[in-house]
């Protein structure tokens, strides 16, 4: 596990300390940082359900709300994070969690390779992740295993490719489609 210095003032936040104390020994953390005061955990794709369940259920963390879920394509910019190159990762799925009870936030990231952009769906933990995962599939082509209804959401079914990938040209055209029936 690598670690970056906190760019904020002061030491490690309570959230981070607790998360590290439990997740560290489990060996699921790849990296942690606290850039601009945002606590961030980077975990392996296969451990995501374990990590999320812990973050939701732990008494001192209680992340009861899945605020945001998105992906980032780091094609050609893998040097931005130290762990991307060694893992040959191209994408990152980014989760932002919030705890209403404790009023704190955390960011969880999962690096994924181009060949296997698979990660387990968290709809079983936060039902509200449904559409967010569909959007990440639609725009980035990340596959959420176990999602009940993984189909395109913002674009139409016949759309070819995943437009927010960096190798999808901004001016690329799509073939015209007629009425389906």
């Amino acid at each position: 596990m690598s670690e970056e210095k906190n760019s904020g003032q002061g030491g490690v936040s309570d959230v981070m300390a607790r998360a590290k104390a439990v997740l560290g020994p489990m060996g699921v953390l790849i990296h942690t940082h606290c850039q601009h005061g945002d606590d961030t955990l980077v975990v392996q794709a296969e451990d995501i359900l374990k990590v999320m369940e812990f973050l939701r259920e732990d008494k001192s963390l209680r992340f009861d709300m899945m605020m945001d879920l998105t992906a980032v394509d780091y094609l050609g910019a893998e040097e931005m994070h130290p762990y991307l190159k060694p893992m040959k990762a191209r994408f990152e799925v980014v989760y932002h969690l919030y705890s209403i009870e404790k009023n704190h936030r955390i960011r969880v990231k999962v690096p994924l390779t181009e060949e296997s952009p698979f990660v387990d769906s968290i709809t079983g933990i936060w039902v509200g992740a449904d559409w967010f995962e569909r959007e990440a599939w639609d725009l980035y082509g990340v596959v959420f295993r176990g999602h009940p209804n993984l189909k395109r959401i913002l674009l139409y079914e016949e759309f070819e490719g995943h437009p927010l990938r960096k190798d999808y040209g901004k001016m690329k055209r799509q073939p015209l489609i007629g009425p389906v029936n």
């Binding site: 009861d64 709300m65 899945m66 605020m67 936060w126 039902v127 992740a129």
Partner: peptide, 8 residues
């Protein structure tokens, strides 16, 4: 339910 669905 509101919390589970990400209502704000």
């Amino acid at each position: 339910d509101a919390i589970a669905w990400g209502f704000t």
